[in-house]
Design a protein around this nucleic acid. Structure first.
Length: 661
DNA sequence: AGCACGCCGACT
DNA sequence: GTCGGCGTGCTC
C-alpha cells in the first residue's frame, strides 16, 4: 500500500443483491490492509456492521458523500485474490447472481488458529524453485500432447484410456491416473500450478496417491469438503503461497487461488456433482472455461466419454479432442433379455450368456455387477392390476426401504402400513424395479458360495482383492479390483436410459463406461437389456456418432446444450412480472411454461449463446430491482437458475402445459 | 436485511 | 395540532 492510498473498495459479504457491489471506505492510520483482506465495516451510520473483502485500493473515490472508516481488520491475508474476484464477477454475471455468493463458495470457512500458525510459518522468500521432476512416459500419448493440452488458453477434450496397470507397490491403478499425473508433472516442471477438479469422493481416492507418487512432497494439495475444516482452510492458505501447487479437489477447488496457474482439469464433466447446488448454481465446466479466458490458462475436460457440451464444442472446433493412440478397451457384449431361454438357474434379470460368463469369470477373480439405484426397490405397484402406486398422503413416489416389508413415501416419509390398491382394491403389492438390496438378494442366491461385496454411498469400498467375489455396486461407487475385474455386468440399462430426464443418455454412457474401464484388459463386459444405437456405441466403444446425433437433435429441438436456458421460479406474480421484463428486453427464443411447483410457478426462458450475455445481464438487473422494490408484506423470492438442464425435466414431463401461446 | 424518511388517519 | 401507520429508498 503506497502512502497515499487511504481508500479501500470493499465487497460486502452479504446475500442481498442490492448490496452486491464494492463500497468505498477510509483506511484508518496504522491499519494493515491489502487487496483481499477481510475487514469489518460499518453500514448505515454505524448501526450495523458487515464483513467484506478489500477488492481494490485507491487514493480517490467516486462517492460524493462522506466516507466511513474500516472498523477492524479481521484478516490482513489477501484471502480474496484479485483474479478470484474477477472470476467471481464473471460467473455472477453469467449466472445472473451475486458476486458475494461466488466469493462465499471460493473461500472456505476461516480458522483463526490455523491462519495464525500459517502466517508464522509462511516462507518470506517468494517462489520456491520447482524441484526437477522425472517426467514419465504414458502409453498412447506423444510427448508433445502434454504441452498441447497445457498451452496458454488451450481448450482440450482429453479422452481417458481404459484399463489399468500394476504400480511399483503392486497395486492396480487405472491408466487414467497415469495420464492425469503426467499432466500435473508437465505443469509443475514448468514451474506452474495445475488444478484438478473431480466430481466425487471416489475420484479423490483414485487420483490422490498417484499424484503424490508422481510429484515431490508438499506439492499436491487436497481441497474438498470431506477434509476437516481446519485442514481444508490450511490447504487453501497453501495455495496462496508464491510457489506452484497441484490442487486436487471437488467443485470448489476450481477457484483455488494458486500461483502461476497453468490450467484447470475437469474430470467427468457430465457428472451432476459438478453442478453447484447453491445459488447462483454455476457448473464447474463453465467456471473452468471462464477462468481460462480470464487468466489465459488452459482448460482440459478429461473423461472416458465426452459430455454433450464437450461433444458440441469439439464439433464446433472450440475444443480440441486428444485421444490415446493405442486403445486397450476390453470387450463389451450387449445382451438382450431373452425370456424362456434355457432352464438355467439364472436370475430373472441376467441373460444366460452373461450368467454363464460371470460363473466362468468367478473361477479366477472378482466380477462387478453395476446397479442403477440404491435401496431395495425403487417403486411399488399392485400385485393384481399392476398399476403403479403413489403415496396416499402426498402422492409422492413410494419405495420399499431396506429390511422393510411396507412401502414408504420418498417425499413425506410416511410409511403405508395398510397398503391397498386404489384401482382394484387388492391388498398385495409388488416391488417395481431393482435396487441394490434386491439385486444382492436375487443374484446372491444364483451364485452360491461366492463372497458378496456391497459397495454404495453408505458402504464405501475402494478396493477389492484379486480373488473370486461378486461385487455389487451402485453406479459411481464401484471399487477398484486388483488386476481388474474378470467380468462386469451392467444391469438396469433400459431403466437408466429411459428415465424421463434430459441427462439420461449422458449419464448412462458415463456410468457404463466408467465400470467398463475397471475391467482387466482381457475381461469382458455385458450390457443387459439395451439395444439399438446405445448398445452399438457401448460394444464398439465409439460414442461420437451417438453423441453427435444427440447434439444435432438437441439443436433441432432447441434444447441444451445447443441453446442456453434460464429457469425462473417463485410466486406466480413475481415470476410473471420477471418474465414480462425479460421478454421486453429482448434476446429470447421463447419461454416454456408455466408449470406449477411448490410455492408458485416455474418458467424456462430459452436464448442463444450469442444473446447469452445480454439476457443474463438483464436477468441480474431484474433480480436486483426486485430485491429493492418488492412488496414487503410478501417476501417475494425469485429463483433464477441459469443453464441447468435438470430444470427442464419437470417441464418435459408436463409437456401438455409446457407451451405458451 | 435493517433502518430512516415521508405523507395520510385517529388521538390527548 | 401530533403520534404512528408501513410504502419507498438507501446503505460508502
Amino acid at each position: 500500500m503506497s502512502p497515499q492510498t487511504r481508500i479501500a473498495q470493499v465487497l460486502l459479504d452479504t446475500r442481498l443483491p442490492q448490496l452486491d457491489r464494492p463500497f468505498d471506505y477510509l483506511i484508518p492510520e496504522g491499519f494493515n490492509v491489502s487487496v483481499g483482506s477481510l475487514v469489518k465495516v460499518p453500514l448505515r451510520q454505524r448501526k450495523t456492521a458487515a464483513q467484506g473483502y478489500v477488492v481494490g485500493l485507491s487514493d480517490a473515490t467516486a462517492h460524493t458523500g462522506t466516507l466511513a472508516e474500516i472498523a477492524e481488520v479481521v484478516s490482513p491475508v489477501g484471502l480474496l485474490a484479485p483474479q478470484t474476484y474477477a472470476l467471481a464477477e464473471a460467473i455472477a454475471e453469467r449466472q445472473a447472481g451475486s458476486t458475494a455468493d461466488i466469493v462465499r463458495l471460493a473461500i472456505p470457512p476461516r480458522y483463526v488458529r490455523t491462519e495464525k500458525k500459517w502466517r508464522e510459518q509462511v516462507p518470506q522468500t517468494p517462489t520456491a524453485r520447482p524441484v526437477p521432476t522425472e517426467l514419465s512416459a504414458v502409453d498412447g500419448f506423444s510427448e508433445d500432447s502434454w504441452a498441447t493440452m497445457l498451452q496458454q488458453s488451450g481448450r482440450t477434450a482429453l479422452y481417458l484410456p481404459h484399463g489399468g496397470e500394476t504400480n511399483a507397490q503392486g497395486e492396480w491403478t487405472p491408466r487414467s491416473c497415469a495420464v492425469i499425473s503426467r499432466l500435473a508433472q508437465s505443469a509443475y516442471a514448468a514451474g506452474q500450478s495445475l488444478i484438478i477438479v473431480v466430481p466425487t469422493w471416489r475420484h479423490l481416492a483414485l487420483y490422490e496417491q498417484p499424484l503424490r507418487d508422481a510429484l515431490p512432497d508438499d506439492i499436491v494439495v487436497s481441497l474438498h469438503s470431506e477434509l476437516a475444516p481446519a485442514e481444508r482452510y490450511r490447504n487453501f492458505l497453501l495455495c496462496l503461497e508464491q510457489s506452484p501447487r497441484v490442487v486436487l479437489g471437488t467443485r470448489h477447488a476450481v477457484y483455488a487461488p494458486v500461483h502461476n496457474l497453468s490450467g484447470v482439469v475437469v474430470l467427468d464433466d457430465s457428472d451432476e456433482s459438478h453442478s453447484e447446488p447453491l445459488a447462483p448454481y454455476p457448473h464447474t465446466r463453465d467456471i473452468a472455461l471462464l477462468r481460462g479466458s480470464l487468466e489465459g490458462s488452459a482448460t482440459v475436460f478429461a473423461s472416458l466419454v465426452p459430455s454433450l457440451s464437450v461433444t458440441r464444442w469439439v464439433e464446433q472446433g472450440y475444443v480440441e479432442a486428444i485421444a490415446p493412440t493405442t486403445s486397450q478397451r476390453a470387450q463389451v457384449i450387449p445382451t438382450e433379455l431373452a425370456l424362456g431361454e434355457g432352464v438355467e438357474q439364472a436370475p430373472a434379470r441376467l441373460p444366460s450368456q452373461a450368467f454363464r460368463a460371470a460363473k466362468e469369470a468367478l473361477k479366477t477373480g472378482p466380477v462387478l455387477v453395476q446397479v442403477f439405484r440404491t435401496g431395495f426397490a425403487p417403486g411399488v405397484s399392485c400385485a393384481q392390476c399392476r398399476e403403479k402406486s403413489f403415496c396416499r398422503t402426498c402422492s409422492g413416489p413410494l419405495r420399499v426401504p431396506d429390511g422393510s416389508s411396507k412401502p414408504s413415501c420418498l417425499w413425506c416419509g410416511v410409511t403405508d402400513t395398510t397398503w391397498r390398491c386404489v384401482h382394484c382394491g387388492h391388498d398385495r403389492f409388488l416391488p417395481r424395479g431393482h435396487g441394490i438390496e434386491r439385486t444382492l438378494a436375487d443374484i446372491g442366491k444364483s451364485f452360491p458360495g461366492v463372497p458378496l461385496v456391497r459397495a454404495d454411498g453408505q458402504h464405501r469400498v475402494s478396493r477389492v482383492p484379486n480373488t473370486p467375489a461378486l461385487v455389487i455396486a451402485t453406479r459411481g461407487a464401484e471399487p477398484l479390483a486388483d488386476q481388474g475385474y474378470r467380468a462386469v455386468l451392467l444391469l438396469d440399462g433400459a431403466a437408466m436410459l429411459s428415465r424421463e430426464s434430459i441427462g439420461a443418455l449422458e449419464d448412462s454412457l458415463q456410468a457404463w463406461e466408467s465400470a467398463i474401464a475397471l475391467l482387466a484388459d482381457d475381461g469382458t463386459g455385458f450390457l443387459t437389456d439395451v439395444s439399438g444405437q446405445p448398445a452399438l456405441a457401448v460394444s464398439s466403444g465409439r460414442y461420437e456418432p451417438l453423441l453427435r446425433h444427440e447434439v444435432t437433435q438437441r439443436q433441432a429441438l432447441r434444447m441444451p446444450p445447443s441453446t442456453r436456458i434460464a429457469s425462473l421460479s417463485g410466486p406466480a406474480s413475481v415470476v410473471m412480472s420477471a418474465q414480462q421484463a425479460l421478454e421486453a428486453a429482448g434476446g429470447l427464443i421463447d419461454v416454456l411454461g408455466p408449470v406449477s411447483i411448490e410455492g408458485g410457478i416455474r418458467v424456462i426462458a430459452r436464448f442463444s449463446y450469442a444473446e447469452g450475455a445480454r439476457v443474463t445481464r438483464e436477468l441480474r438487473a431484474i433480480r436486483q430491482k426486485l430485491a429493492v422494490s418488492r412488496n414487503r408484506s410478501q417476501p417475494a423470492r425469485l429463483r433464477i437458475v441459469v443453464d441447468n438442464p435438470d430444470r427442464l425435466d419437470a417441464l418435459l414431463r408436463e409437456s401438455d402445459e409446457a407451451r405458451v401461446g
